[in-house]
């Protein structure tokens, strides 16, 4: 930051009142945009994981009271052997108890407590996505053996969730875009105000031969410093949020290195946006001013 500090110390433009508030406002907007993109990314990855886990699976849940009898277990195995002959069934597996416990632990986050619970027996049926699966027939065959058994066809609840997830993704992207638009508007407004406030100094600079690009560069330096501060604020806030969220829900929503990339990438993009918008605003303002100097 030294190069910014040294180049600003003899800047012809004095600090304006907005220079104290702007880093916080823009920082908050960058933070919101980062959260929106992180949210979009999180939803996408969760959906992808769920899709991998659930899209070709049907689960049979046998209540805890019925699973203890060894003869019933034998009946179940026989039933699965029969079903495995069907072309639509790719694989059938009685899930080990520790896997069932893992599934519950993901939601309760207390492994010790989960071990004390009486959990149902789960049978995972991997079915072909290319063939029609006779769910009613499977259900009937299973309930003949285990009247209380429930057949979970994940597609039934998964499809609406997918729709909600798509909407959430769209909303996140729209929120990120809206944030960028607000940042652009804020920078245009702030730069325009700076130009009005510093019109006298701009006239002096033009009088001594400063080109429009020189004037733009002076204001860009100020905005660059502001954008660096805003990005720092946004990165710190995003890291704190991500750590907190990760601690709370890492078992449900997986986090990867991409999240850290997003936290750095969004502020860098915003800095570029701020600099471009500042430059264009100054150049447009000076273009409209033509050669006029009023001193």
């Amino acid at each position: 930051m030294y190069f910014l500090k040294s180049s600003l110390s003899d800047s012809p433009f004095a600090k304006s009142s907005s220079s104290h508030v702007l880093p916080w406002v823009v920082g908050a907007l960058i933070y919101l945009a980062t959260l929106a993109v992180l949210g979009c990314q999180g939803v996408y990855r969760t959906m992808e994981t769920w899709h991998m886990l659930l899209s070709e699976h049907v689960t049979v849940e046998i209540p805890a009271a019925q699973k203890t009898k060894d003869e019933d277990l034998d009946k179940l195995k026989t039933l699965l052997l029969t079903l495995e002959k069907e072309s639509w069934l790719l694989e059938a597996e009685i899930m080990p108890e520790n896997r069932v416990q893992d599934l519950v632990t993901a939601w309760i986050s207390d492994a010790a407590l989960v071990k004390t619970l009486v959990l149902p027996m789960l049978v995972d049926l991997r079915v072909s996505s290319e063939q029609r699966v006779p769910l009613e027939s499977i259900h009937k065959k299973i309930t003949d053996v285990f009247p209380e058994a429930v057949l979970h066809n994940h597609a039934e609840w998964y499809s609406p969730v997918l729709r909600y997830a798509s909407f959430a993704q769209f909303f996140s992207v729209a929120l990120a875009l809206l944030t960028v638009i607000i940042v652009i508007g804020t920078i245009v407004f702030s730069t325009h105000s700076d130009l009005i406030v510093h019109q006298h100094i701009i006239n002096i600079l033009q009088l001594i031969g400063a080109t429009d690009t020189y004037v733009a560069a002076q204001l860009e330096k100020r905005m660059l410093r502001m954008a660096f501060l805003a990005s720092f604020v946004a990165i710190v806030a995003s890291v704190v949020t991500l750590f907190t969220f990760r601690k709370m829900s890492s078992a449900i929503i997986p986090f990867e290195h991409q999240e850290w990339g997003i936290i750095i990438f969004i502020p860098i993009c915003m800095i570029a946006v701020v600099i471009c918008v500042t430059r264009l605003t100054v150049l447009w303002f000076l273009y409209r001013k033509d050669i006029n100097i009023t001193l």
Partner: peptide
């Protein structure tokens, strides 16, 4: 001057020095 672009004007002003009654200095420098 009628045909002059803004950039040309800026570059030509470097060959002109101007002094005003009220100085027009930049106060914080």
């Amino acid at each position: 001057i009628q045909q002059m672009s803004v950039k040309q004007a800026s570059l030509l002003r470097r060959r002109v020095g101007v002094v005003f009654q009220d100085f027009n200095l930049i106060e914080h420098l």
